[in-house]
Design a protein around this nucleic acid. Sequence first.
DNA 1: TCTGGGGTCCTAGGACCC
DNA 2: TCTGGGGTCCTAGGACCC
Length: 399
Amino acid sequence: MLARVTPPPLPRRIAHLDMDAFYASVELLRYPQLKGLPVVIGGGRRRVDSVLEQGADLPIDQFPRLGDYKGRGVITTATYPARAFGVGSAMGMMKAAKLCPQAILLPVDFDEVRRFSRAFKSTILEIAPLMEDRGVDEVYIDFTEVPGGQREGGRVLARLIQKSIFDRTGLTCSIGVAPNKLIAKMASEFDKPNGISIVHKADLEPRIWPLPARKINGIGPKADARLQALGITTIGDLAAKDRAWLIEHFGRAYGAWMHEAAWGRDTRPVVTASEPVSMSRETTFDRDLHAVRDRAELSAIFTQLCEKVAGDLQRKGYVGKTIGIKLRFDDFRIATRDQTIAQHTADARLIRQAAGQCLKRVPLDRRLRLLGVRVGSLAKPGELALRAEAPVPVTGELF
DNA sequence: TCTGGGGTCCTAGGACCC
DNA sequence: TCTGGGGTCCTAGGACCC
């Protein structure tokens, strides 16, 4: 009898690709005279120095310096020469300014960053169709079934992608290829910038276990601190603990996941498409605002935030049903309130109205540092029509 | 002058329904 | 009067990620 013989499945090869110092590298393309210098991108508000309008010919000594910056905000990206001074992503600007006042400071150009983001992603898609978007500067790519994706554990394909991106954009990236997303993510950091790292199952003990537990994507500062308190520093330490013990200390889901992660196990697929769950806009004020004394200013900002979210929803073709606000007080405590309204909307006034009611439920005894507006439970208007989301039926007639 | 902005997912309690 | 489950939705907070 004839049997259909299915070939054995190919071993999974998953790549994680991370653009090197992305925001900064994009600016270096525009100002090549800054190459090799400490440059940081960031600053809370978009305070574009007028000198930058001069464009590409601006002499180095005329660029704005980190040490001259006054204001709130954090570093988005630092070039490698700036990192040598200890400056890095998410660091407060004031702290960074103390470490490296002479660094050149440039504002983020979101349009330009998005343009290059689209360019590098479309370059990848021409080579490998299964790509998962993980933000402006990161993606996962499934190499498994791509022709040549298995050669040298994925190195050949990784090299091709790296070169194609560079030829198209002038930007470098680092790639890790491994049996799954979890390990690939760690591997892409092994040889930065402009590196490629190939990791196999057998590398778990020598290359993964010595790493700090914090390197696992999903173990953040809080979990890491708790692990340290329990005497666990490396991924190997974590792997040595038994599952039940981890569950005891971290709960059923998180404890079990930690155990799997430490053993390099991860079956998550590369997801090529997803729908947004929520959209939001928030802003940190130049100075902390008083709910009563600065009422007019707050109210105007509040309305603008609602208009921006509404604009985002409309532009992207979504409506939402859960309207929420977020406050950050001067002591950094955060409060959120939300309210689910009767029907989905993308209307600025309806959002403002619901958000206003949320605001009334927060005790405003401290000054405010940040205000945000969020719309969740998103849907596409067209799909709601199919589901026939109708007005709430009139009650009474049935009784 | 420490500490941005835009997200996702999880937990946990209460309401409400079956 | 007390005692049940399960399931879903809503809300608030928190951890984490880019």
